[in-house]
């Protein structure tokens, strides 16, 4: 290494390598340059170290702690809200009404394919729970057929009312209290007591379902 290389590297501020050190120890001129440079670097550092506002580091660190606390508080609030919302949603989902929807989604097509039972037979089967003439007062009864449901026999009814089609599930052996609701995959169901059992009204349009259920309750 020569003096030019030494001084050039010294000016980069990257520190002294072993090769540079060897040269400096043998060269009085570069040793003097090194001392001068060391003083310059000290002054440079002092110049760059502008005053920092009092407590800046602590303030910034505390801001992060506060930010994390706020984040956790917001997350906890959101979790509670989501939980409450979920609970409310689940509370609205009556299991029997949900089972009614499942029946229509999975079994209605089979029931219709199997064909309706004769009118007189339907009249006799429904008499104790929901007399057929009440249904006929609401619209046109297109189909009645007994189907296995929840371990018992229920009667699947397709009813055409002026607003559209609804399905009913007349459940002579299922007693319930009050009217309950469920919705799933775009379908709505209302279940309520009827005669010695209960009935479910299932359809795509919530307003139609509600209207038919209201008429049956009345």
């Amino acid at each position: 290494m020569n003096c030019l290389d030494y001084r050039r590297q010294l000016l980069c501020g990257t520190g002294e390598t072993d090769g540079m050190r060897v040269h400096r120890l043998q060269c009085a001129g570069c040793a003097s340059e090194w001392q001068e440079q060391a003083a310059f670097e000290g002054a440079l550092r002092a110049g760059l170290e502008v005053p920092v506002p009092a407590g800046f580091g602590e303030r910034m660190a505390n801001a992060q702690v506060a930010r994390r606390r706020r984040f956790l508080a917001v997350a906890a609030t959101a979790l509670v809200a989501a939980g409450a919302g979920g609970y409310a949603w689940l509370a609205r989902q009556d299991p029997l009404a949900l089972a009614n929807i499942d029946f229509v989604m999975k079994e209605e097509a089979n029931s219709i394919m199997m064909g309706a039972i004769p009118h007189a037979e339907a009249q006799a089967a429904l008499a104790a729970t929901l007399p057929l003439d009440r249904l006929e007062g609401l619209g046109q009864v297109k189909h009645v057929r007994p189907c296995p449901f929840n371990g018992a026999t229920a009667y699947h009814v397709v009813l055409m009312v002026p607003q559209g089609k609804v399905s009913l599930l007349v459940m002579p052996s299922t007693r319930i209290r009050g009217r309950h609701h469920a919705e799933k995959e775009g379908m709505h169901a209302e279940v309520m007591p009827a005669g010695n059992g209960s009935v479910g009204v299932i359809g795509i349009d919530a307003a139609v379902v509600d209207s038919v259920a209201g008429a049956l309750k009345a």
């Binding site: 760059l48 170290e49 502008v50 920092v52 506002p53 800046f56 580091g57 602590e58 910034m60 660190a61 992060q64």
Partner: peptide
């Protein structure tokens, strides 16, 4: 990390 480097980040 912030506490350690805040001053130099500021400068």
């Amino acid at each position: 990390t912030v506490r350690t480097h805040a001053a130099d980040l500021y400068r």
